[in-house]
Design a protein around this nucleic acid. Structure first.
Length: 939
RNA sequence: GCCAGAGUGGCGGAAUUGGUAGACGCGCACGACUCAAACUCGUGUUCCUUCGGGAGUGGGGGUUCGAUUCCCCCCUCUGGUACCA
């Protein structure tokens, strides 16, 4: 028979499939297994065409599609184009070609490429988001959002790309640069429309539990949304009506708040301008900040700021008067735009306070030892006594070689002060001293037999005024211990006290941190906070918030989605303004609200649509004199946030999708695409569905039940392909040289779907040889039945089917290779057996499958029914199991799969290589796992 | 810094309810075919070895008859994110 010629057969079958409309989906068709919605991330039709990454993702869904269809599902496997966007517009600016024209040319090229890969999409029914028949529904949905208060316009500080001349969303800023053109992003005050995605922040986190997505992707979205739970607390301003609200996750440190910081853009600053005595200086700082790009702010780590002279805030916890600053480390867009600064326990506040010489007050002590529940412990005090030179008084229990701080653990006294006074005098004789602050708290576990259990101790710093003493009054056991009092310097303690007396070095550390003014950001026990002393940080967060009239609250890193773009090639925002400047939705009857064509593309910083006379006339004619259009267009991510809802009913001119079809086809069963869409597209699409659910348009809350990512396709060295490196591999070239079947199969074989694939032309020959072997098998077809092949085939049907459902394509291909290697060595294979194998192969290599099928006379493989297997053909007659002696493998034996332990042991003894190990000693134990392993313990 | 994920032959990778580590493929070596080369086919291919064995899944410890798989500590790499209070 003739040689395998991929070019010839692939072109032949692509033509046949096209003519037969093999991939046409009838969404109303009834099938045994019902509907399955399988979705690819649709591409932007770039002039560069498909890249290898696309090829992998699209091949993956196509394989799944063919399998599902042969299993009897009605599978929707659509394609389309995310065709609005900047590249076409930029190309238009350069060449004068209208974006619509570029889009047409590029789309046609993509479709050609898809077909040449043998992808089974219905190319007669594709979506282009730039078609009025599509974007009229983007606009209709905008109208629904508008009516339901889910989109609003306000002047806001937005990310502005000077090169693209447009605002961009937070998600589209990468490292301070524009995601598209890589130029620096600046902050600009601009009127902009925004979707209220933050209304759904909690649902966007919680509902992830209901979908089958990669865990990493879920976690990334959760991080991106950035929920933090904390408190909102109001600080009064002295002699003013206004209050400053701050958000904090550390209300337990409120007593340590020694100043406040407002973001430079905070609106209160202007309101207080008459009170601020150095307003000129303040305004100058605000102006400087405004000029900084996002990147400047990130790069200049050094803290800057200006005090608002004349403004004093009151710390509601202790009524202390504290200064107020503005500084750009407070961000206007996050929470209230104001921070209560606790330099002792927050790194950023600490840095600022150090620079501006602000007080650092410690109000949380780190635990020496962890204890979750304070309430069940008895309490005591602990005195850390210092003399005038700063030395510490230590007790050395010479009999037990034990060091202790003077002080006591007795109870009964009303206050800690009483206990301390009594104890210090009894044990040391000192009486003229002053009790200072709480340094830390900790726990001591006494031995079980002592009956003392666990004690919770507070360590107070005590300073002696005089070293005069009165009579010492020790208890009997204390006398017996032969206690010596000694004054030690910090250094002495570090050097001489052994480290197992951990609490003494620990307290020295703590004192040292306080003295050296170190920042201690961890949670622990509240100290120096009046009635809250001794409370755990977590309890104190709630208690202190409550005490000062604050509110427990969550804030989010996620911000509303700013959708206005000052560009041409996008979906027009369907809004007009009346002569008073109020906005109105243009109304359903005026949809599609067409993108005007009489527009100069060259960007000027204002929206290109402003130059359209047609648009102006349209508005005047429809609404009257004095009315003006909205000139901005929508972010292209709006278009792609709902396209999957349109596919099943894309020709519907009355609705974006009928209720009936929504119910039958949504949500998407399996979605495959790159992980780079985690923050933008996937988050926005989820928001859209949740918003539509709230409005009552859809009855589900998550758009994509199951999501998988394909990895990237890298070059031979594993490096990312890029134009600048000149290592980009063109899929068309590969298809021409190796054929679509080999390219598809190799991509699936080279690595698990979600891992990166290394594109190495030297390796694809392995897959090509495999296909040649399959081809050669047609020469062996004969009438007789080959039972050996039959058994392997049944195993293969099960393995490949299971692996396909789990998207483990790489091992499925390897199993098929094994089968072919086996079958190639056989004398013959029946026509029926070869056909069933071809069915298994066809999702990966559909062209060769149909060609062989035609030669076998078995018709189009996609229209056949996926083969089944018999359980009883899966079992082997014999099985080889490993024999271990003392856990080390010493040989193997071949037995029947249901051999008893006795039989296996006997077989082992008759194997000379094993027997010599068995003779080493007596058999003490035998572990036999049927079909797997025999382990004999000899000793 | 924080949050994920991953470390297995020369290379891509396989095996995880704990049970023969290295499937399948590339490469390499040898052999057959050939005047020769390529193709193809066959055999071998983790490392060390005194050919008895020994070591081995990033490193160290632990649990177990048995660990790539489970637990603890550490190292390295990749990706994401970062003045988010």
């Amino acid at each position: 028979m003739d040689r395998y010629n991929h070019q010839e057969i692939e072109q032949k079958w692509q033509k046949i499939w096209d003519e037969k409309k093999l991939y046409l989906t009838d969404i109303h068709k009834k099938t045994d297994n019902g509907n399955f919605y399988l979705l690819d991330m649709f591409p932007y039709p770039s002039g560069d065409g498909l890249h290898m990454g696309h090829t992998e993702g699209y091949s993956a869904t196509d394989i799944f599609y063919r399998h599902k269809r042969m299993l009897g599902y009605n599978v929707l496997h659509p394609q389309g184009f995310d065709s609005f966007g900047l590249p076409a517009e930029n190309y238009a600016i350069k060449t004068g070609t209208h974006p619509a024209e570029t889009t047409e040319t590029n789309s046609a090229n993509y479709i050609q490429q898809w077909k040449s890969l043998g992808l089974g999409h219905d190319f007669d029914n594709i979506i282009k988001t730039s078609d009025p028949s599509y974007y009229q529904w983007t606009q209709w949905l905008f109208g629904e959002f508008y009516k339901n208060d889910l989109v609003y316009k306000k002047t806001d500080t937005v990310n502005w790309c000077d090169s693209c001349n447009t605002t961009i969303a937070n998600e589209q800023v990468e490292d301070g640069h524009c995601e598209r053109c890589k130029s620096e992003i600046i902050q600009k005050e601009i009127p902009t429309w925004s979707y209220k995605i933050t209304d759904f922040a909690d649902a966007l986190i919680d509902d992830l539990e209901t979908v089958d997505w990669p865990e990493a992707t879920k976690k990334k979205q959760i991080n991106w949304i950035g929920k933090s739970e904390g408190s909102e607390i109001d600080f009064a301003i002295k002699d003013r009506e206004e209050v400053i609200s701050v958000f904090t996750t550390r209300a337990d440190t409120l007593f340590g708040a020694t100043y406040l910081v407002l973001a430079p853009e905070h609106q209160l600053i202007q309101e207080l301008s008459n009170t601020i005595t150095n307003f000129a200086e303040v305004q100058a700082y605000i102006d400087t900040t405004a000029k900084k790009t996002e990147l400047d702010r990130l790069e200049s780590k050094e803290k800057t700021g200006v005090q608002l002279q004349g403004v004093t805030a009151i710390n509601p916890a202790n009524n202390q008067e504290i200064p107020v600053y503005i500084a750009d480390y407070a961000l206007v867009n996050y929470a209230t735009g104001a921070v209560m600064a606790v330099p002792a326990h927050d790194e950023r506040d600490f840095e600022f306070a150090t620079k501006f010489e602000l007080p650092i007050n410690y109000v949380v002590a780190k635990h020496l030892n962890k204890s979750e529940d304070i309430s069940h412990h008895s309490k005591g005090v602990y005195a850390i006594i210092q003399n005038s030179t700063g030395e510490f008084l230590i007790q050395h229990f010479s009999k037990r070689d034990f060091y202790w701080w003077p002080g006591g653990t007795k109870e009964g006294e009303e206050t800690d002060e009483d206990t301390l006074k009594r104890e210090i005098q009894e044990e040391t004789g000192y009486f003229d001293f002053e009790i200072k602050e709480v340094l830390t708290e900790f726990y001591i576990d006494y031995p079980h037999d002592s009956g003392l259990g666990r004690k919770h101790l507070k360590a107070y710093r005590v300073v002696l005024h005089s070293e005069d003493t009165k009579e010492v009054n020790l208890m009997d056991d204390e006398v017996a211990d032969n206690i010596k009092l000694m004054w030690m310097t910090e250094e002495d303690i570090r050097k001489n006290i052994p480290s197992h007396h951990s609490r003494i070095p620990f307290i020295i550390e703590t004192i040292d941190s306080h003295k050296q003014k170190k920042c201690l950001p961890s949670v622990g026990t509240v100290i120096n906070s009046g009635e809250f002393d001794g409370m755990s940080s977590n309890d104190a967060k709630v208690a202190i918030t409550k005490k000062v009239g604050g509110r427990m609250k969550s804030t989010y890193r996620l911000r509303d989605w700013s959708l206005s773009r000052q560009r041409y090639w996008g979906c027009p925002i369907p809004v007009v303004y009346d002569p008073q400047g109020n906005s109105h939705f243009v109304g359903e009857e005026n949809l599609p609200w067409l993108l005007p064509t009489d527009v100069d593309f060259v960007p000027t910083g204002t929206s290109p649509l402003e130059n359209s006379q047609e648009l102006k006339d349209r508005v005047t004619n429809l609404f009257g004199e004095g009315w003006v259009a909205e000139y901005d267009t929508m972010d292209t991510f709006v278009d792609s946030s709902w396209y999957f809802l349109r596919y099943p009913d894309m020709h519907n001119t009355n609705e974006f999708c009928s209720k009936e079809i929504l119910r039958q086809w949504q949500p998407v069963d399996l979605y495959i695409g790159g992980a780079e869409h985690t923050y933008m597209h996937l988050l926005y699409a989820r928001f859209f569905v949740k918003a539509l659910h709230k409005i009552g348009i859809v009855d589900f809350v998550e758009p994509f039940k199951m999501l998988r990512h394909q990895g990237m396709v890298n070059d031979k060295e594993g490096k990312k392909m890029s134009k600048s490196k000149g290592n980009v591999v063109n899929p068309d070239d590969m298809v021409e040289r190796f054929g679509a079947d080999a390219v598809r199969t190799y991509m699936m074989f080279a690595a698990p779907l979600e891992d990166d694939v290394i594109w190495n032309e030297d390796n694809i020959v392995g897959v090509y040889r495999f296909l040649e072997k399959v081809w050669a098998l047609t020469d062996k077809v004969s009438e007789g039945h080959n039972e050996a092949v039959e058994k392997e085939l049944h195993k293969l049907i099960k393995a490949v089917g299971d692996q396909l459902s789990e998207l483990k394509y790489n091992t499925a291909v390897s199993d098929m290779m094994k089968f072919i290697n086996m079958a190639s060595k056989e004398e013959s294979i029946s026509q029926d057996q070869l056909f069933r194998f071809i069915q298994l192969l066809s999702p990966y290599a559909p062209h060769i499958a149909d060609e062989i099928s035609e030669r076998l006379g078995t018709g189009l493989v996609l229209e056949s029914v996926w083969p089944t297997y018999n359980e009883d053909k899966l079992a082997d007659e014999t099985v080889t199991i490993g024999v271990q002696i003392n856990g080390k493998r010493r040989g193997d034996i071949t037995v029947s799969p249901d051999a008893t332990q006795e039989e296996v042991l006997t077989a082992s003894h008759s194997e000379s290589t094993i027997k010599k190990w068995l003779d080493e000693g007596e058999t003490r134990k035998v572990i036999y796992i049927p079909g797997k392993i025999l382990n004999i313990i000899v000793g």
